[in-house]
Simulated scan of single mutants.
Amino acid sequence: MRKTTAMIAAITMLAVGACAKKAPEQLPPAPEGTGTDTGTNTGGVVPGSQEDFVANVSADRIFFGFDQYNVDAEDQATLQSQAQWLARNPAVRVTLEGHADERGTRDYNIALGERRANAAKNYLATLGVDPGRIDVISYGKERPAALGSNEEAWAQNRRAVTVVISR
């Protein structure tokens, strides 16, 4: 019985070892825009990309008070920085994502997130950004930036985030 068990174990080990995949001789190129490809991009950030946006604006998001969607002075400064970047990159389109904290119903938070994203869009439009370049989506409370049921987490989740979608 022990001999049979040992023989089965040995055969299993050989079979598993034979199924192991060999590493390819050459790896495929990294996806475009990741900065790790070996093509014409010799390092650095691709102009007009999300990485370029994040590196060159004061922030990619603005924050709101509880049950609020007004753009305050700090938010205005952030959006002015974003508008300047968008002016330098006229072919770029963005999506403004509206978010809410976990309190309230799903429907209420979807509507609140949309009001937050639209408030940011409207302010960017007053700064000369073509509203046709800006899409709006609300995730409500479905995509929290911070987990937790406390004021610190809630404050991080009440936001509008600007995301580059094309160039």
Rank of each mutant, 00 (worst) to 15 (best):
F53R: 07
K22G: 09
M1E: 14
D67I: 09
M13K: 15
A73R: 07
F66Y: 11
M7Q: 15
D75F: 00
A91L: 13
K3N: 14
G44A: 09
P31H: 02
G43F: 04
D135T: 12
S138R: 00
P47E: 08
A117M: 02
T5A: 15
A153F: 03
P24D: 11
Y69H: 11
I8A: 14
G104S: 12
S149K: 01
I110Q: 08
M7F: 11
V45A: 06
A18Y: 10
I11R: 10
F64Q: 03
R159Y: 00
V161W: 00
R159S: 03
K141Y: 00
F53V: 08
N122F: 06
G44V: 10
Q84R: 13
V129C: 04
E74N: 11
T40E: 15
A111N: 14
T105G: 15
A155G: 05
D72N: 13
P47R: 08
W154G: 03
S149C: 06
V54P: 05
A59W: 00
V71K: 01
G17N: 11
V129P: 02
A18R: 09
T5V: 14
P29L: 06
F63E: 13
F53S: 10
A119F: 00
M7R: 15
R116C: 03
F63R: 09
G140C: 06
S58C: 04
K21R: 13
R133F: 03
D107V: 05
R159E: 00
D72F: 04
S81D: 07
S138M: 01
Y69Q: 12
A73C: 04
Q68A: 15
Q76L: 01
D75S: 15
G48Q: 05
R115M: 12
P29C: 02
T4I: 14
A55H: 12
M13Q: 13
G35S: 04
T5N: 14
N109Q: 09
A9N: 08
S49H: 13
N56V: 03
D60A: 07
E151V: 06
T162K: 00
A153Q: 04
G140S: 02
R61A: 06
A153D: 00
Q82M: 11
D101H: 00
T4E: 15
N89M: 09
D130E: 09
S81E: 04
V164Y: 04
L124H: 02
V57K: 05
T12C: 11
P47I: 04
D60K: 00
L127E: 04
A153C: 03
E142Q: 10
A10Q: 09
T42Q: 14
F66D: 13
V71Y: 02
V45L: 11
A91H: 09
A111M: 09
A10D: 13
T42Y: 10
P90E: 11
A160G: 05
F63Y: 14
A73G: 03
E151R: 07
T78N: 06
V54K: 13
V163M: 02
